[in-house]
């Protein structure tokens, strides 16, 4: 279910990173970001260190949510691919399954055609990984595997006193 709690373990993160690092190379991208549809950054790769990724993730999710709303009004399910062309850098945004968003930033070293082509393959791989993460999250949700079952009122209070 889309609204279930999402839990990402180290191994999941490593698998996502492997896919997007490969995509940076094959698409000649500047930066690649994987964002949860609720606006949380999940993984990043490329040379764009130091940019405000929290805002990037939130706005990308807002963008996909808004365009999804537009799509429904005209009878589409969603618009799975978005392209924003800038003077120097451009942004290719695509949805991955029902859970994630893939953002690719590229400049004149690449082209829209190449990015589109390479994204398609990566999307399939990422969709598979997310399906597995979701299945695992659903299983973990009902068990005591998460460390938060043990949170005490004191833990919560301490958070605000520190």
């Amino acid at each position: 279910m889309l609204d279930s709690q999402l839990v990402m373990y180290d191994e999941d993160h490593r698998r996502i990173l492997a896919v997007i690092r490969k995509l940076v190379q094959s698409a000649h991208a500047k930066g690649i970001f994987v964002v949860d549809r609720n606006g949380q950054l999940m993984a990043e790769a490329g040379e764009m260190r130091g940019i405000d990724t929290t805002s990037l993730a939130s706005l990308a999710a807002g963008n996909i949510a808004a365009s999804g709303g537009l799509a429904k009004i005209i009878g589409e399910d969603e618009f799975p691919v978005h392209f924003h062309q800038g003077r120097r850098d451009s942004l290719h945004i695509s949805t991955v399954g029902r859970r994630a968003i893939l953002l690719v930033v590229f400049d004149e070293r690449s082209s829209l055609g190449l990015v589109r082509l390479r994204v398609r393959k990566a999307q399939t791989e990422l969709a598979r990984i997310f399906e597995e993460i979701e299945k695992k999250s659903e299983r973990a949700g009902g068990s005591a595997e998460t460390p938060f079952a043990e949170i005490t009122d004191e833990d919560i209070d301490n958070l605000f006193n520190s």
């Binding site: 709690q5 999402l6 990402m8 180290d10 490593r14 609720n38 999940m42």
Partner: peptide, 15 residues
């Protein structure tokens, strides 16, 4: 819903 990231040791919640 909340996103628990073991890799970054983070809990993310939306209010």
């Amino acid at each position: 819903m909340s996103f628990i990231n073991y890799s970054a040791r983070e809990i993310n919640c939306k209010i």
